[in-house]
C-alpha cells in the first residue's frame, strides 16, 4: 500500500514536471514569436527616408506685370531675389510676379511674411505690398497657414511684389531729391504639420 502511494506520488510529480516543462516551452515560443510572428519590431525613428527640404523661387517664372517699370538690375537665386527699379513720377510702379515651388519630399506651410517698414515720410509717397494666395499684405504677418504641398500639381504658388510711387496729398510731401529705398520681403516657410 505504501509502495502504491509512493508510486502515485511519483506519477503526480512527473505530471507536474511535464506541465511545467510544457508551460516553459510555450512561454519560450511566445517570447520568441512575439518578436517575429508579425515582425513585431517597433522603432522610434522609423526608417527615415532620404528627405529633402526644397522651397525656392522658380527663376524662369519671373515676370514683370503690365505697366510696371523695368528693373534696371535684378538677381534671382534659389531663395533670394534682389532688384533695382527707378520710379520717376507718381503713378509709376514696379511690380513683378515670381513663382515659389516646393520640390522637396515633404509639405511646407507659409507661416510668416516679413516686409520692410516704410518711414512715415516714405509712406506718404510710396507703398509696398506683397500678394500671396489672393491676399495682399503691406505689413509683416505671422501665424499664417498657407500650405505649399510637395505633391506635383499643387506645389507652385505665385508671389507678387509691388512698389508704387503714389501721389501724396500735398506737394510738400514729395521727395525733393532722389531717394533710394531698400525694400525687402521675406517668406517664411516651415515643414507642414
Amino acid at each position: 500500500m505504501a509502495k502504491k502511494k509512493i508510486q502515485k506520488k511519483q506519477q503526480q510529480n512527473r505530471q507536474k514536471f511535464l506541465l511545467i516543462a510544457l508551460a516553459a516551452v510555450v512561454l519560450t515560443m511566445s517570447v520568441g514569436f512575439a518578436l517575429y510572428a508579425q515582425t513585431l519590431s517597433i522603432n522610434g525613428q522609423v526608417q527615415v527616408d532620404k528627405s529633402k527640404w526644397s522651397v525656392h523661387f522658380v527663376t524662369s517664372s519671373y515676370a514683370e506685370d503690365s505697366g510696371s517699370v523695368v528693373a534696371s538690375e535684378k538677381t534671382i537665386a534659389d531663395t533670394t531675389m534682389s532688384y533695382k527699379a527707378e520710379l520717376r513720377k507718381p503713378g509709376d510702379f514696379y511690380s513683378f510676379t515670381i513663382n515659389v515651388i516646393n520640390d522637396g519630399t515633404f509639405d511646407a506651410t507659409l507661416k510668416t511674411i516679413t516686409l520692410s517698414s516704410l518711414t512715415t515720410a516714405q509712406s506718404k509717397y510710396l507703398t509696398y505690398e506683397l500678394t500671396y494666395e489672393g491676399n495682399t499684405y503691406t505689413t509683416s504677418q505671422t501665424g499664417l497657414n498657407f500650405s505649399l504641398p510637395a505633391a506635383t500639381g499643387t506645389n507652385i504658388k505665385p508671389v507678387k511684389v509691388k512698389a508704387t510711387y503714389i501721389t501724396p496729398s500735398s506737394e510738400a510731401e514729395l521727395p525733393n531729391e532722389n531717394v533710394t529705398v531698400s525694400l525687402t520681403a521675406t517668406l517664411g516657410y516651415e515643414q507642414a504639420q
Binding site: L19, A23, V26, A34, I42, N43
Partner: peptide
Amino acid sequence: VVITLIVLTALVSGIFKYQLIAVMPNS
C-alpha cells in the same frame, strides 16, 4: 497554468482582436 498558456497564446498569436507586442526602442 493552462488558462495562462491559452491566454498568452491567444494574445501573442495575433489572430484575435487583441495582440500583445514587445517594444524595442524608446520613441
